[in-house]
Amino acid sequence: MDYKAVIIGGSAGSFQVITKIIASLPENYSLPVILCLHRLKHVRSGFVEALSIKSKMPILEPNDKDPIKAGKIYLAPANYHMYVELGNRFTLSTEDVVNHSRPSIDLSFSSASYNYKRKLVGIILSGANKDGALGLKAVNDSGGLTIVQDPSDCQVPTMTQAAISATEVDHVYNTRKIIEFLLNLDS
């Protein structure tokens, strides 16, 4: 099991879960953690700061073509789509919203699965729309590992339910189990 990256998608109701997850990860976590989270329209800044309070790992909103490195958390910048490009770099784009969202979880997940293939862990958390379902399917189709937050553990279960019906997921976990799993990946 040598995974190269973890990618996490979340929307409404995911902020607390995400905060708990990143608070549990050690400073030198052995993988990059890529976050694609929907934000409220008017909350354009201050999000990194809010997440950073509890995090031991540095959290960055990447610039275009920034390399992806282990031990860092990357947050898709507000109002940009964030792709993972071959050669382990991010590419940003401001093209139209996808599933009413920019960043779109589907786009980040599909491009990450294309780059990392089997070596990717994709996680979908609480949310109120269907973004991420096709992305998680792409992760599954390329042989990556898929995890969905247990809908009964979610503040808003729509997104996780959509992901579960779009593809056969490997694990349905509550927040505690997701954290345990991520800590076990650390080498």
């Binding site: 789509h81 792709y83 993972v84 490009e85 071959l86 590419t91 784009s93 093209e95 786009l107 491009s111 294309y114």
Partner: peptide
């Protein structure tokens, strides 16, 4: 052009 986003276009 950047591959991933171009392919999507």
């Amino acid at each position: 052009y950047s591959e991933r986003s171009f392919k999507r276009r």
